[in-house]
Design a protein around this nucleic acid. Structure first.
Lengths: 201, 201, 201, 201
DNA sequence: AATGAATGAGCATTCATTCAT
DNA sequence: GATGAATGAATGCTCATTCAT
């Protein structure tokens, strides 16, 4: 790939890293590969990022940022009269869609050992939490409307998140039994979740 | 560790690999480390396994075998009068427990990119399926008893499996927000699943 | 460290280099480290020094200058009636003290391979020689007073310098056997030297 | 250089490392340079030595071993009626000669920061001490014969060693003023030392 | 007077694997 | 059945230096 004159090198590096992240795991993305894929030396990366960790973290941050915006946009796009349950549905589907369409982000955001992240200040996790908070807020509203069972909103969001993550990660890892249609499975999962949280009459 | 005279080297290698798998990820387990931890040369592993992939696959197979036996034992241990729902509950908890207690197996069974797996004949996945089949059978019985909603048993098992996997993998990766108690979250998940699958009265 | 507005950058660089030289060896002091420790870019050093060699040489020069002044001051501080032997003693102790208290200067002045120095004109060694000359002058006076044996003053100074250097360099490199007290060893050395140069009665 | 078929690779590596040590400092000798100078890959070295430190240490050990043997041989070569003072003289000259003729050994034995060595068990320093002990023993005999002043033999050996080291290291670093003849300086040093330790009549 | 951007060479180390024995 | 010896490729990272601005 030739050098892109218009784009700053920092942005190019991030883009290249993302692209490589799809094909190879975090472990297999190397500074050299990233650099050479955009026609630069590995050393140049170190001018823009302190080290590999920082580069990956910049990507994680970007991922959470994008997911947040995507979530917001999806909810804003709902019709005025959408019920809180619709919003929950939208939020769930957005999360799944985001994961499947941005595997490179999803992997580093949710499928990577966080031990290495421990070194980073908690402040870095703010963006991560914003997404949980958004989910909790939506759940909270559905709760107030008497539509879903009375549970701690944040915990409930974590529960739903974990469940969806199981699906997304297995799809991304091609670990779903070939006999199952991915979409059918997803609908089944969403169905179970919704049935599991709504107030039974 | 000294050489174990009684145990075949093949078995020793698998044991050592497993032990290392707990501490380090799949990527970080090397032939050298495995071999030297049991007092042998890396080369000697190649006498027993074609390459690293084959070694890992032998472990995956063993993992599925163990999970299957554990599942069976758990169900057998249930009281005579246990309801089909109890069996479903037992099956779910056994899966989670197995994952948390055998992270080394769980990681390679369910948390590893399957690109390399592609090379292996589908026949290798037989053991994987046996566990799904067991779940499907149990679900099927609950269905016949009119206790759970009418859904394709195998798909339903996949759904439940994916949901539980989301929890297990996040716990293993320390990705659960520190504000949540792991057990509380698990109970919430099991609760949602059960509520989601049972027949509404 | 914030930029010091009052001090010229050249001086700041030298100060920073010195400071780093204490902790790390010559080899481990890098342009980047020097520059970043005073809040500048590595590149900016090149405006003030042709290259790393020149920077180190400027420091060496400064070191010799300082040692010379310290020597002069020490002798000037001696009482009027001090004997030539007292001056020799003062000169020796000053040299040792200077080395132990200014390891960063001492290392580059006396403990560094001079291959790189070869490129520099002999003229650069003038300051080095001034210190030898001072020693020779003092020895000469003691000789005229019939206190020390008749030897070429400059050679004698070199002899004494080499001997003291052995001690200083070993102390700085932590190469003195832990069973020996540094001061006891120094006094023993000074004692042998003095006994070795004085005229026997 | 072609591969030497007769010699074990381990020995070849040590020889090559030594050779490079002369031209470049410890810091500048790299595994790559060593390996490629004998026609092997850097990796091969790691088969024979755990890491660079261990390689350097093997060399240090060898150096001390050689110095010890050289010292013994030199003393054994003295005539039957040699006086203890002759033995001291032999010991001193042997040390200096060894240093000048084996700069690669001398550098790592006596001219290198010992911080990195700290990690190594004290047992590794046995060979270092053997040489000090030999010197102390010789001094002790001279003392019993009433030829040298009454001082702690080991401390005295350290004193003499430090003094000679000053000379050797400066010669090796080309730090001796070009106006001095190296041999003349050495004789002057030996003269001062001998005059400084003998019993004055 | 100083920076931003980039490079090429280098380093110690680790890895999976091979081959002859 | 297992080892000794060796390799080629790769990794994250640091360094002195250059050049245009």
């Amino acid at each position: 790939m030739a050098k892109n004159e218009k784009e700053g090198l920092r942005a190019q590096i991030l883009r290249a890293a993302r692209k490589l992240l799809i094909k190879e795991g975090v472990k297999d993305v190397s500074m050299r590969k990233i650099a050479s894929s955009i026609g630069y030396t590995a050393t140049s990366i170190y001018y823009h990022f302190k080290n590999k960790d920082e580069l990956i973290h910049a990507l994680i941050d970007e991922g959470h940022e994008r997911l947040y915006r995507t979530n917001q946009a999806a909810i804003a796009a709902l019709p005025e009269d959408a019920s809180p349950l619709d919003r929950i549905d939208s939020n769930m589907r957005t999360f799944v869609k985001f994961g499947l369409e941005n595997p490179e982000f999803y992997e580093i955001m949710y499928m990577t050992q966080s031990e290495e992240f421990a070194k980073y200040p908690k402040e870095n996790f703010r963006k991560t939490r914003r997404n949980i908070d958004l989910g909790a807020q939506i759940y909270s509203e559905a709760q107030k409307a008497g539509l879903v069972r009375d549970r701690e909103p944040r915990l409930s969001t974590a529960t739903i998140g974990a469940m969806l993550h199981g699906y997304v990660s297995w799809v991304l890892m091609h670990r779903i039994d070939t006999r199952f249609d991915h979409n059918k499975l997803l609908e089944d999962i969403l169905d179970v979740i919704k049935n599991g949280i709504v107030v039974k009459q």
